[in-house]
């Protein structure tokens, strides 16, 4: 059946992405990059995929997502430093819950807002959380950060895996990336995914179809911040510390730029492309010039001006022209031209 084929096509793409990412540690140093950057990329991919649930799929322009990433990092750090925690699972669970808790609380005040008002509120909440992180020194140690975290072992009861090497830490990140991708993939093809995409396009119509738009915005935002929290927790493990800087407006802006440059507005994989583009620019260009961030900014402007659908959008255009591929950035039900119509179609040309 056509539907199965198009479904498996997209599945093939996913398997390909996973397989490609699994090979990264094998060749990354031979192209002149540190293996540490691979972990950064995979963690920011998790973060960006979660962010895109809000921005790309629900149309919620959040400029304060860094706060939730940072809160996830602090949850992991405080669990280790203040509580002496040693379980990876508990630490990451706390990261997720902290991200979701802070996000869910903020979203209570935002889910009935739209456009610029929504955006301003996300900035306000982001700034508040950032400010608290800097000022509450007794918990966060302010700008000096919480240091000397352990990369807690991945404990499965009967055996446990050590992630103190960068390579094994990368595979831990990849495992979570795969879980997040599968979860998001399932979610966006479920009714929930269609409803958030509907309200992104037209809130009024969505209300009139009988859906509680505010509730869906709240859930989507909160899920997105839960994923940010997870990414933050992994980030704290990776760099063995937690600092407030990732919570700043600056870093919140970077995730927006990555997602848009990559093409998150039209593509499931767009955020991944954007994250890779950013880090590769930073590490390749950064070795030649310290103004690489300027060039990243210029590329962001170029995207906004010439190709608002980003790298993924460009790729779709090219693949449509060259390979005559259908504009399939999401699954579509199969065509049914062969089904006999019971009565003549009444054409409204």
């Amino acid at each position: 059946m056509t539907s199965l084929r198009s479904y498996s096509n997209d599945f093939t793409k996913m398997v390909f992405v996973f397989a490609f990412l699994a090979t990264v540690p094998l060749w990354i140093s031979s192209v002149g990059l540190y293996d540490y950057i691979a972990i950064e990329i995979i963690i920011w991919c998790i973060y960006a995929m979660g962010y895109n649930l809000a921005l790309g799929y629900t149309g919620l322009p959040s400029f304060g997502h860094g706060a939730f990433f940072g809160i996830g990092a602090y949850a992991m750090a405080m669990y280790q430093v203040h509580e002496g925690g040693t379980s990876l699972w508990v630490g990451l669970l706390l990261s997720i819950l902290a991200g979701a808790g802070a996000g869910g609380l903020s979203a209570l005040f935002m889910s009935h807002r739209r456009g610029i008002y929504f955006a301003l509120m996300t900035i306000a909440f982001g700034q508040v959380f950032w400010f608290v992180a800097i000022k509450k020194r007794e918990y966060t140690n302010g700008e000096d950060g919480l240091l000397n975290l352990e990369r807690l072992p991945v404990d499965f009861g009967i055996f446990s895996l050590d992630v103190s090497s960068n390579q094994s830490m990368y595979f831990l990140g990849l495992a979570f990336f795969m879980l997040v991708v599968l979860g998001l993939w399932t979610l966006i093809h479920s009714p929930f995914g269609y409803i958030i995409q509907s309200l992104k396009q037209n809130e009024t119509r969505t209300w009139f179809l009988g859906y509680n738009v505010h509730l869906f915005k709240w859930i989507s935002f909160t899920l997105s911040t839960a994923i940010s929290g997870l990414a933050g927790g992994l980030f704290a493990l990776t760099q063995r510390s937690a600092f407030p800087d990732v919570m700043s407006l600056h870093w919140s802006g970077i995730i927006v730029m990555m997602t848009i440059v990559g093409g998150g507005l039209v593509s499931f994989w767009g955020p991944v492309l954007g994250v890779m583009f950013y880090f590769i620019m930073r590490d390749f260009l950064g070795t030649y010039t310290s103004t690489w961030i300027l060039w990243f900014g210029v590329s962001f402007m170029a995207v906004i001006l010439f190709e608002p659908h980003g790298i993924a959008g460009l790729w779709m255009k090219i693949s449509q022209r060259i390979f005559k591929m259908s504009p399939g950035h999401r699954l579509l039900p199969p065509e049914r031209t062969l089904v006999p119509t019971p009565e003549p179609s009444n054409e409204l040309v």
Partner: peptide, 21 residues
């Protein structure tokens, strides 16, 4: 059309329903 169907609305929180297939 699909988002408007009652069968989708009634299962709006069913994560494991794959709408397009």
């Amino acid at each position: 059309i699909m988002v408007a169907l009652p069968n989708v609305r009634q299962r709006q929180f069913n994560m494991f329903m794959n709408v397009p297939t």
